[in-house]
Nucleic acid binder design. Structure first.
Lengths: 137, 137
DNA sequence: GTCCCTCTTTAGAACCATTCTAATATATTG
DNA sequence: CAATATATTAGAATGGTTCTAAAGAGGGAC
């Protein structure tokens, strides 16, 4: 991990009032080093271990939840039985490939949802999620 | 369950090439007796037991999957960690209440999604799911 | 630097919804 | 009604996620 990446990670953690522990810094490094990523707790854990970062699966879960809480990540619900996370927290939606479980971003500018009814009394819209399920033709 | 409901259930099962066993007929009765419903395997099992229908949880799971396969039900993915089913198989979308986990239908005529990009080469769009997440304001 | 207090990490157990197994029961066909 | 295929079942297994309680590490005060 480059010096620059580590500093960025530290800043992010500081902003979120999370102690920059070795594990959090390393995971943030993997997550935010370059480009946007889609991942699961298991896949990030495997990647960390593969990269020689000693971290337990429990910590990966904790960290993903804390980062999500801090607005550094967002959860994507496309599959009952697996939590996906996305490092792209901007306005966008997803293609979900039912064959291999992969996700592809759809830019927020591209897609538009019209005609959402008024929510029931006392309720407010939190988020509108669009999942375009695709499969090999 | 009324005579009419039982007959309807039998017809549905016959059309799906599923033997009209006591359990399937009874569950179909609960599911399609009136109006559209949202449910989980656990909730349907509890409802069946409460109604004096002896059926195991495994059978409820089997039956829900078979009915889904047969196009009598559709799955709704709104929560990582729970399978929801919907007896409304027509074109529509959902409000999902994050406070209590309930679903509310949004008619297909009301809502429109525009600007979906072309899927990657060799892939075809299977379905477009919109989930409007709401919570108590 | 050292002490202390708090927050964090961890291994492993617990959890929970779902799926599997293999024995038993039921529907259908002839 | 017998023979065969299909369904049901209890309970075990699975797999992803969360919890627990004990050990470890960060950070401020001095």
């Amino acid at each position: 991990m480059s010096r620059k990446t580590t500093e960025t990670a530290n800043e992010r953690l500081k902003a979120a009032a999370l102690r920059p522990t070795r594990q959090r810094v390393a995971l943030a490094g993997l997550l935010f080093a370059r480009g946007h990523r889609h991942l699961t707790a298991e896949s990030l854990h495997a990647e960390a271990i593969g990269a020689g970062i000693a971290v337990s699966l429990a910590t990966v879960y904790n960290t993903l939840h804390q980062f999500t809480e801090a607005g550094m990540l967002r959860q994507v619900v496309v599959d009952a039985g697996r939590f996906y996370f996305d490092t792209n927290i901007g306005d966008h939606q997803h293609f979900y490939c039912e064959n291999d479980g992969s996700l592809i971003d759809i830019p927020g500018e591209a897609i538009a949802v019209a005609g959402i009814p008024t929510p029931p009394r006392g309720m407010a819209v939190d988020r509108v999620d669009v999942v375009v399920r695709i499969r090999r033709a």
